[in-house]
Simulated assay, not measured.
Amino acid sequence: MEYHEYSASSEYVHLLSVPMWTDLRPRLAAALAGVDPEAGPVLELGAGSGLGTDVLLDSLGNDVLAVEPSASLRGVLLARLADRGTHRVTVFPGGATDLPLPGRIAAVVGMHMVGHLAPTDRKRLWAAAAERLSPGGPVVLNVQPPTAAEAVPESPWMGVAVGGLRYEGTGSAEPTGPDSVRWRMRYRTRHEDGTVLAEASAEYSWWIVTAEGLAAELAEAGLVATVDDDLVVARKAGA
């Protein structure tokens, strides 16, 4: 089943995501230190345009199994992989719960995507991944606000300039249940004189989970998790 939530916004997603990786990139690389290159592939959930994939390729010697359900974002990811000239990444065209997991997994990474998974789907995925995870292999996930099902007012426009145009985005959310919200994102392309040349919008559902709640889910799967602000790193007990 095709995933269309990012179809209208894929022109903007990569550009607007780059700044947040300034802080995240070294933290993710540190969490992955010591991953055994012979222990199997690294499973990357919700690879998007490949900003996390870059970290995996630059930090590790493992092959990468990148999962991305959005055809639009896969197009960006595949183009960027082609530019790198790498054959170490296999891009699976589906969601995290659609993937037939390999028998061995060296590590699991999921950045900016956990809220797309319903609680029952998350728990099944953590359990299945934990069974295949190599000793000492990390599961590295992060969480995003909000931490409760409450309205989020529209944020100030943020953006980046490319040539003579500026690509901008903003977002807001409304609760849809006791543990979920629906995000509404707006995007625009502006000329340097302020003229808006193009606009787009996207909506998607988001399940609320805190870092502590995510750590508890991973513990149910037999993993021992530590929390560092928005980052959760878990390993098998005793590993």
Results as ranks from 00 to 15, higher is better:
60 L>W: 02
149 A>F: 06
158 M>C: 00
133 L>P: 09
48 G>I: 00
164 G>F: 05
147 T>K: 05
85 G>L: 12
145 P>D: 07
123 K>W: 11
168 E>P: 01
86 T>V: 10
65 L>W: 01
82 A>H: 14
61 G>L: 05
83 D>S: 12
104 R>T: 14
48 G>Y: 00
129 A>E: 15
66 A>P: 01
134 S>F: 07
68 E>K: 01
60 L>N: 01
168 E>G: 01
159 G>N: 09
142 N>W: 06
55 V>M: 11
89 V>M: 13
50 G>C: 04
82 A>Q: 13
128 A>C: 09
105 I>F: 11
107 A>P: 12
100 P>C: 15
46 G>W: 03
163 G>C: 10
64 V>D: 03
102 P>L: 13
79 A>F: 03
113 M>Y: 10
67 V>C: 05
144 Q>N: 14
116 H>S: 10
86 T>M: 12
101 L>A: 15
102 P>E: 12
159 G>I: 04
158 M>P: 00
96 A>H: 06
109 V>E: 08
49 S>L: 02
86 T>D: 13
145 P>Q: 11
60 L>F: 04
141 L>A: 05
164 G>S: 14
88 R>F: 09
111 M>C: 01
150 E>Y: 01
58 D>M: 08
146 P>T: 00
138 P>Y: 07
150 E>D: 08
167 Y>H: 12
157 W>D: 08
70 S>N: 05
167 Y>Q: 01
63 D>N: 11
140 V>P: 01
123 K>H: 14
94 G>H: 08
94 G>P: 08
69 P>W: 02
88 R>D: 04
57 L>F: 08
101 L>Q: 14
75 G>E: 10
105 I>S: 11
102 P>D: 14
85 G>K: 15
170 T>Y: 04
104 R>H: 15
118 A>T: 00
62 N>T: 02
118 A>P: 00
104 R>P: 07
88 R>S: 09
167 Y>S: 04
46 G>I: 04
110 G>L: 06
87 H>E: 15
150 E>C: 06
56 L>E: 03
150 E>Q: 15
59 S>A: 15
81 L>I: 06
118 A>D: 10
56 L>V: 04
146 P>W: 02
81 L>P: 02
91 V>E: 09
156 P>H: 07
54 D>W: 09
149 A>H: 03
85 G>S: 11
161 A>G: 08
114 V>K: 09
165 L>P: 03
48 G>V: 01
92 F>A: 02
77 L>A: 02
119 P>D: 12
109 V>Y: 09
161 A>I: 00
94 G>S: 05
112 H>G: 01
127 A>Q: 15
127 A>M: 12
58 D>A: 15
84 R>Q: 10
95 G>F: 05
71 A>I: 03
136 G>S: 13
128 A>L: 11
152 V>T: 14
108 V>C: 12
166 R>I: 04
165 L>A: 08
136 G>W: 12
125 L>S: 07
130 A>V: 04
